[in-house]
Design a protein around this nucleic acid. Sequence first.
RNA 1: GCCCCGUUAGCUCAGUGGAUUAGAGCGUCUGCCUCCGGAGCAGAAGGCCGUAGGUUCGAACCCUAUACGGGGCACCA
Length: 614
Amino acid sequence: MPEKIEELVRAALAAAQEAGDVPAFDLDDCGLERPADTSHGEWTSTMAMKSAKLAHCAPRKIAEAVVAHMPEDVSIDKVEVAGPGFINFYLSAAACNAILAEARAKGMEFAKSNVGQGLHTQVEFVSANPVGPMHVGHGRWAALGDSLCRVMSHAGYEIQREFWINDYGNQMNTFGNSISKRYMQLVDIMRKNDVDIDEARDLLAQDRDNYVQDEADEHLDSYPYMDDFTAELGKDSYGGTYIIDEAAEFYRTDGDKWVDADPQERMLSFRERGYQKMLVDMRDLCHDVRCDFDVWMSERTMYQKDWTGTSPVERAYAKLDEMGYLYRTDDGALWFKSTAFGDDKDRVIQKSNGDYTYFSSDIAYHWNKFQRVDHVIDIWGCDHHGYIARVRAVCDALGYPGQFEVPLGQFVNLLRNGKPIRMSKRKGTMVTFRELVDEVGADATRYTLISRSSSQAIDFDIEAVKEKSQNNPVYYVQYAHARTCSILRRAAGVSVEQASWMKMDAVATKAIGANVDYSLLTDPTELALSRKISELEDLIASCARDRAPFRLTHFAEELAAAFHSFYQACQVLPSEGRPVDPELSRARLAACDAVRNVLALTLSLIGVSAPDQM
RNA sequence: GCCCCGUUAGCUCAGUGGAUUAGAGCGUCUGCCUCCGGAGCAGAAGGCCGUAGGUUCGAACCCUAUACGGGGCACCA
């Protein structure tokens, strides 16, 4: 439709200029927009205001001349000049409602575009360390990243989803040692108190709870095991209950065979098996919120030597060195000249003691990414923002300027009854994402986490989301979808059971039949439906371009509201005392079906289910 | 000191340079089921868009300055 209106505007302007009503000038942009207020028509052109200066002519005068020369068109009811010089186009009902037929015909393929032009894009997100459970912040990245991928795919990008596993470095050993220490403590408790593993686990967990609750460290003797734990492993150790559970599980499978074993071997065994379990847990949890990754990339692979006898990290160093971007200081540390690419200061990539810094992994990793895709998006928490410049510097240095971007996301503030929850890394207290999903449900969790701009910090009140889940907008939208299904089932004379094996598309076809006359839909609430639905394609394209999938939740709520209004104002099926013309009824059913399709599509783009009944 | 995010209705937030009247949800108040799903609808009340300049035909939106709030500035990962 916008293409057609643009044609008409250009033709009208040419005619007006030909007639001498408007000075000659070149029009580069028709400035087509959708007026916010429906009383201003379906489309408006701001070309008169935009070209007023160029034409040395009052915008209102240009607009009037253009309208006077506007060619006739069947899909245009009328064209008007309004305000300072808007040219408003009012479409016929048939033209407005054509979108309903399109939405029904295309279903989940509706509102696709090609703004991405097939650009091979990798989106890396979540990438939680495999040494503990995912927290709510990771959940936000999962919801955001996955939704972005779905939206970008719909808008014509070739998308690859990737999870980067930080399974290299000291933290892995700390993780292994933490489990190992807990294992030894469990054995100690069992022997001293003559209890079984389950009781020992509870005693040890209680010891930790005492420690956590004692914020001020006042009762120094009430949690001996926790003190012993932190004394031996330091404050950066992993003290959470899940580590105790992990250790107890290893005791159940292995018994006390590790008690007298070599501590290093014990640590390695626990580390690797614990790591694998964490990975499986994260994969399952992501899957449960409908977020599945294409690639799980291990940091360790960046240090594994291939047949050439070198690792990806070493090859990346050689490449940068060859290009003259590395230098070594007297103390032996190796530096990357990131200031050459706009970073604040140069960055160490190999410490003076010979160890690699974490940054070195990212150098090799991002080089690796660009060997697989043409564009890289890393979704990071806002606390990583200082890290962007150096990674971008690497990408620039390696020859991929402008192909690396980082949408930063603000954090999730967890609250309980309006009070902030103390999240202590030191003491390992946290509300896990798993707990949240199990209590609130995947749909409400995902919807809530995606529904705000990622540049906005979210206050997520657990009690409020749990207790007020009935008021959650996600149910409002799902209810609208279920309602369309209900009407279609009733019209088709099909039970819920029959519908479930027939599928809703078949139910709709049975209810509606062929050759629907969409021009019968002229009520304002009916036209509001087609108007709203016609916005989706541009919306998806802009969500993809701006990396802002959250806007789809607003669209879903608006469409649901438009549908509920329509439903209230227009009787779809004839009932006692409320007759409806059969053809009108079919057209309204078709409108319901279009809404059903579009709601299902929109919800699927944000990874939320569209139930046929609730 | 430097960098990032925010500041819009009582609360939580949308707002892509456009129109007299800056929107939505929650909360408050008033109506609407002998009627296709009331998890709904219709309406009311509630705003000098943090402040001050600038750009523009036009600014909540862009620019500059400034105030307040949150976060970040490792040879940690």
